[in-house]
Design a protein around this nucleic acid. Structure first.
Lengths: 330, 330
DNA sequence: CTGAAAGCGCTAACAC
DNA sequence: GTGTTAGCGCTTTCAG
């Protein structure tokens, strides 16, 4: 790597003169300037990033974004949002844990050695201790869970409301035997959605029937098949996420039942790529993921700047009605 | 930010002693060591990344990964691969151009000021001039196109072969009136796939009928509807990508034709999330994207290390047969 | 054991 | 106009 000094030696001037020319500052004779520019180009000179940020006061802040799985559209969208919030003067260092919790903790713990100004943890499963530990060194943004530490802000989605409105929608569209295919209950998010579902059912004096199912298509498929085989009366299904819903949809079709006429289905997350491709298209509770990513980055910048006022930011999900649950008023 | 000097002052020792303790090097009296560790923790000391990389010889190499759209599963997978290749000692700076060519060029041009060791350009539309310009400063890995410059290596997929084998597969499964819904022909990739299709058709003395259609679902849907409305005989469709194929599938279903019995369909890219969710599931030509990402990172590291021997790396796609084109032998 | 000193590459006063 | 100097925060000889 070419350095200022090399250029200086080659052109018989001082380092500072070279620096001036290359940065277009101060006055330098046209002759030297030409010579310097020429040599710099020949050498393919590129200023050393680290040296420069050390010498200057003004740093480019880099944010460490830790996701469990960049292939998952949810996190890809989140990433997009974060990227958007980083204008010209911030960089995103992406760290994928490949769904390995151990690796994830390692990444979080090491992040501070990589010169990031702060980190965004796009996952709700991190241990509280780790968050607290890391936040004593650098600002942290986390999702889905509140922390009362001055270097941490959390972004939460109103899962309760999302589940509530999805369930209510099913009810208002004529369903009365609505089951909930939920996530495993050790996850906070799953519990909140379960509660939202229950609240809506209770409000209309309907019996809540919920199963902890899981998070992928097959889980939804298997459980739904089981339910239908058992002869249990069902005319509506509210699912933990879109994948589970797609699985349920598959099972319903196998039983030659119509969606939404016989059974209406609503998912959660609103992965458009998925919801609009299946037929009938799937109604789902939309999370403003991209916006959430954008806001998390902005809040991180605030934290880095020293603004300690913000503790959390709540987003409201919104139901997107598609074919799988509409026109069902009887 | 706490510095070594602050700790040194507070503990009445020299900077170098503090450095030794914090790095576990050299011999330091137990008493001082304790004191230093204690103060360091209190201050929430974190070594300055830039200062450290400057002082040490051993740098963490960071790779700049430029993608047009991280939400697109193709690029998400590519990113995954790159991440995988970066072990403990490399970081990925992700830069999303949001499909804005102008922004993309800006990102590529600026990358070198961010201290990256090299960049991977996950897009085939960049201008040759830009690639050449940037590669005079830092190593570059590009896709789909060859360059004869010592600081550039390219990763290419054998699109011709992929298209050829997909088409041949359709023929061998009993199709003879096979149309190709292709991409726009200004894209190199589209042309290669078109040629592969043609080659296979020619080999079996069948008439090639190809249309430049585009890249999204709606394009495939519209064109297929048009074709079916026209009464043209069709029993097989080979599409530019999976989205187009899904669109075509939709159109075929609307005409109450069976897939694959009446019309078999094959896509390209093998986006599993998509292919396995539609029904019937979609056959597709698989690109080993993740592996491509991994290899591109590895080659970039070679380039950075000074290995100038590798110029390009070719990947072979592989057909994945699913319901939309199978069991059709008559 | 401990610390002074040099230096990584660059910037920014401040002299000349 | 141009060069000297003093750091930025850290690591690493090398004396003591």
């Amino acid at each position: 790597m070419a350095t200022l000094k090399q250029i200086a030696d080659l052109t018989k001037v001082s380092v500072s003169t070279v620096s001036k020319v290359l940065n277009g500052k101060g006055k330098v004779s046209e002759k030297k300037r030409r010579e310097i520019l020429k040599v710099a180009k020949e050498l393919g000179y590129t200023p050393d990033f680290h040296a420069r940020t050390m010498a200057k006061r003004t740093q480019i802040t880099t944010v460490g974004l830790i996701v469990p799985d960049i292939i998952n559209p949810f996190f890809a969208r989140l990433t997009r949002g974060v990227e958007k919030a980083c204008g010209e003067d911030s960089l995103v260092i992406l760290m994928d844990s490949f769904r390995d919790l151990h690796r994830e903790e390692m990444l979080i713990r090491n992040a501070r050695f990589f010169g990031v100004g702060g980190i965004i943890i796009g996952n709700s499963r991190v241990s509280d201790d780790l968050v607290l530990e890391v936040s004593s060194y650098i600002p942290v943004v986390v999702f889905d869970k509140d922390y009362d530490h001055e270097n941490v802000v959390s972004i939460v989605l109103d899962n309760f409301y999302g589940a509530y409105s999805a369930t209510k929608h099913l009810i208002e569209n004529g369903c009365s035997n609505i089951v909930h295919l939920g996530g495993t209950y050790e996850l906070y998010v799953s519990l909140q959605r379960l509660e939202g579902y229950r609240a809506a059912m209770k409000e209309f004096n309907l019996k809540a029937i919920a199963y902890p199912v899981g998070y992928d298509e097959d889980k939804g498929y298997q459980k739904m098949k089981e339910i239908l085989s058992s002869g249990q009366r069902v005319d509506g299904v509210f699912c933990m996420n879109d994948l589970v819903a797609v699985g349920a949809l598959k099972a319903v079709r196998e039983f030659s039942l119509r969606v939404p006429e016989d059974i209406a289905i609503v998912g959660f997350d609103d992965d458009e790529q998925l919801c609009e491709v299946v037929s009938p298209s799937l109604s789902s509770v939309h999370q403003p993921v991209e916006e959430m990513g954008e806001v998390s980055a902005k809040l991180l910048f605030e934290l880095i700047k020293g603004n300690k006022k913000i503790k959390r930011y709540i987003f409201s999900p919104q139901l997107v009605v598609r074919q799988s649950s509409s026109k069902r008023k009887e």
